[in-house]
């Protein structure tokens, strides 16, 4: 199950900057899908909703608002509303992009072009890093530099190294949880597909039902992982924002 990755490297002031082309492409596709779906769903907005799209969008908004409110006061958390809702939409769409099909070129390296962008650890770790950086930024902004530094020594001074390392584990757990779930899901999908295509009659019959079941389950995982990612990001944010923790 080795697949090649299309790469493209440019030299930026002597540093080689490598682009994973398929991941970059999928990221942009995800962004476009998310944007246009939401854009066309909110063209006919009214104080009295006239169609289902607006109701659906408002439900999503209120859902994310509930997620934020369950972690912090809305007065503090309100400014993360748009970010959280964009994040959950992006991750969910990114997760489900790999479900219906994958595109593997029939060349020597079996170059994989169409996949979930979240099946790439670079993407998930970058997203997680963005969230963690955000928590630190708002931690300093809301508590002030002094309180922010003091919070590392908070319960006991000797716990500072643990708390310091914790910040990196947050990043890793947040990113790798998403990556692991989606990547494993895609691996299993590919295995099931290869069972159907190469396993003869028995493989085709035996693999079809599990493939469908797994696709459905992966849809569920996609939603759950998007939810968990945003929820944990909000939890980390709330840890940094409130000084009573």
């Amino acid at each position: 199950m080795e697949h090649g990755t299309p790469t493209f490297t440019i030299d930026l002031f002597g540093l080689p900057v490598m682009f994973d082309l398929s991941t970059s492409l999928m990221i942009i596709i995800t962004c476009l899908i998310v944007f246009f779906v939401f854009f066309f769903m909110t063209r006919k907005l009214a104080v009295r909703p006239t169609g289902k799209p607006q109701v659906l969008m408002e439900t999503l908004m209120n859902f994310v608002k509930g997620m934020i409110s369950s972690n912090m006061a809305w007065k503090q958390g309100g400014k993360f509303h748009f970010m959280a809702i964009t994040l959950i939409a992006f991750i969910f769409v990114a997760n489900i992009l790999g479900i219906p099909f994958t595109i593997i070129l029939p060349d020597e390296a079996h170059t994989l072009w169409w996949k979930s962008p979240t099946a790439d650890p670079t993407v998930t770790l970058t997203l997680a890093g963005l969230m963690i950086v955000l928590t630190h930024y708002y931690g300093v902004q809301m508590q002030g530099m002094g309180n922010y530094v003091k919070s590392y020594f908070q319960p006991m001074w000797f716990m500072a190294p643990i708390k310091f390392i914790e910040e990196f584990t947050y990043n890793l757990t947040l990113g790798l949880r998403l990556y692991g779930n989606i990547y494993a899901g895609e691996i299993l999908l590919l295995l099931l597909v290869s069972l159907i295509t190469t396993g003869g009659i028995l493989g085709a019959v035996g693999g079809f039902i599990p493939l469908m079941v797994w696709q459905g389950f992966k849809l569920f995982i996609s939603a759950i992982q998007a939810f968990i990612f945003v929820m944990l990001a909000m939890v980390y944010l709330s840890h940094k924002l409130s000084d009573d923790h």
């Binding site: 490598m18 991941t23 970059s24 962004c31 970058t126 997203l127």
Partner: peptide, 14 residues
């Protein structure tokens, strides 16, 4: 190596 470029693409596009 690490696909730093992908990170940049992700950050910018996100």
């Amino acid at each position: 190596g690490v696909a730093i470029g992908s990170s940049l693409v992700l950050l910018v596009s996100f």
